[in-house]
Structures are given as C-alpha cells and as structure tokens.
C-alpha cells in the first residue's frame, strides 16, 4: 500500500498475487481523512423540556468509515446523549434505517466516502413513532402489520417431527426464500406515499409477506383467505404503484412484481 505525504492512507492497496510475485492493484474503499460534517435531528419526545433541533458534528473521516462507525464515534467523544439504533452493523438485522440526505437507507451499510461534499444530514425514519433522535419504534409497527396479515404458516395437517419431512420442489423453496429475505427494516414503508396517507396500510413489507406465504407449499390458505386479510385499501388496493419501495429495498426484493402478482390474484377472487 502507498501512503500520502501526510502519512494518511492512500487509495490503492498493493498485494502480491502468486509465487512469481506479480503485483496487482486493488481498490479499497479508503477515505482521505478529510473533515466531514454530520447533521442530526435531536429530539426526545418523552422529555417535556426537549425541543426538536439540528446539531452539527464535525469529525475526521477514517478509512472505510460507515455511518455506524461515525455515529459510534460521535456518541463516545462529542455527544454522549445522541440516540440511534444499531444491532448487527452488517446490513442483516434491519435496525438502523434512517433518512440520509433525504433518502431512506441502512446507516450501517452507508459509507461516508460516498458523499463527495462531506456533508451528511440525518433524520429519523418517517411513518414510525419517534423514540429519540434517530431512534424509531419499528418493532410496534412491524408487530401490528404481522398480526394484521397473519404473517405465519397456516397448515391443515399435523407434522410428526420424527418422520421424514415433506418434500418440496427445490425451485419452489428457492422462490419462497427469495421473498423470505425481507429484514423488516421499514425503508419501504418510510418511502411509501400511501403509508403516509393511510395509517393502517400494510406496506410493501406486508404485501410481500403475504406473497411469500401464498407460494409456500406448507401453507394451506386459499386466495380467498388472503383476500380477507389484504383485499382492501389498507392492503393490496391501497398501493398506488409509485414503487419507491423497490427503489429503496436494501435486499433488492422484487416488490414491484410481487405486489402486481398479489393484486392480480386478489382481483380474481
């Protein structure tokens, strides 16, 4: 690897490839050590004295810095009172959704080096109840949605778990898995116009969940049963097909085609 004059890390990293010591260059997401400014909303609704305000934090960027690393540093060294939600910090658990320069994103997967201006504005996810600063209550929303769409297998046969499992076509299992990858981060809900207008709209997350059970061979529910759950304007007919959900889904779920699929099924009921 090369170093710049001031001793900070350069953009390129060199590695030796094989026994002939042939060298190649490899790009790493290494920042410049520049000064960046992160601006966050601060507000604690449970404290009557708290007023919403924006606070600027200046810090030096480090190589490969994510918003998780940046906010952890801010909390330890600049503002001990700043709240945010991080759990896995690997883009797997879906806890850390927030608006980053206006776009709903998983903060842990957002690199500060992606922002050329070095200025990053953070707001809590809309639609969800604010707990404090950047921390929102996605848990209650997702629980309500899950109960609303009966987000579980309904089987009409008992399983004897000491006997051979039911055979499933490999392709079908893959299709169910594809939709089961949703991490309930809420970015689809935060980017959805219907969700802002209709408090009880189940969102792309809810409609995708129903599509997931609809194709699962373990589930015995009919399309009529699913119609009972989502056959209204808070369900499949509430979607205006603006599809910001698909644009912002961090798992790249096929939300557009699955919502269209469910709508066709429900119209047919």
């Amino acid at each position: 690897m090369s170093k710049t004059e001031d001793g900070s890390l350069g953009q390129q990293q060199e590695k030796i490839v094989d026994s002939q010591a042939k060298s190649v260059e490899k790009k790493e997401s290494i920042g410049e050590g520049r000064e960046i400014t992160i601006t966050s909303l601060k507000y604690n609704p449970s404290n009557p004295d708290s007023k919403p305000e924006f606070v600027d934090y200046q810090l030096r960027e480090t190589p490969g810095m994510t918003l998780y690393i940046a906010l952890t540093k801010i909390k330890a060294t600049i503002d001990h009172d700043l709240s945010s939600d991080f759990v896995c910090r690997a883009g797997i658990c879906g806890a850390c959704g927030m608006l980053v320069n206006g776009k709903p994103q998983l903060a842990c997967k957002t690199l500060t080096s992606d922002f050329e201006s070095g200025k990053i504005d953070l707001l809590p996810l809309p639609t969800f109840k604010l707990i404090k600063d950047l921390s929102v209550d996605t848990g209650t929303w997702m629980k309500d949605m899950s109960i609303r769409v009966n987000s579980w297998i309904v089987a009409n046969e008992e399983t004897d778990i000491s006997k051979m499992e039911k055979k499933i076509e490999p392709k079908v299992s893959e299709e169910v898995f594809e939709l089961d990858r949703c991490i309930e981060c809420g970015l689809c809900v935060a980017s959805c116009s219907t969700a802002i207008m209709r408090e009880d709209f189940v969102g792309a997350v809810g409609l995708n969940r129903v599509a997931r059970f609809q194709i699962d061979p373990h589930d015995s529910r009919s399309d009529e049963d699913f119609y009972e759950l989502i056959g209204d304007d808070d369900g499949i007919f509430g979607c205006m097909s603006l599809l910001a959900c698909e644009d912002h889904c961090p798992k790249n779920l096929p939300l557009q085609s699955k919502i269209a699929y469910m709508r066709r099924k429900m119209v047919a009921v």
Binding site: I153, A155, I168, E169, P170, S173, D180
Partner: peptide
C-alpha cells in the same frame, strides 16, 4: 420446515 423455513432442497 413445517413453520416455513425455506430450507435448500435436494
């Protein structure tokens, strides 16, 4: 499996 884990199948 009966609760819906989409295990990879043979």
């Amino acid at each position: 499996a009966s609760w819906g884990v989409p295990w990879s199948r043979i």
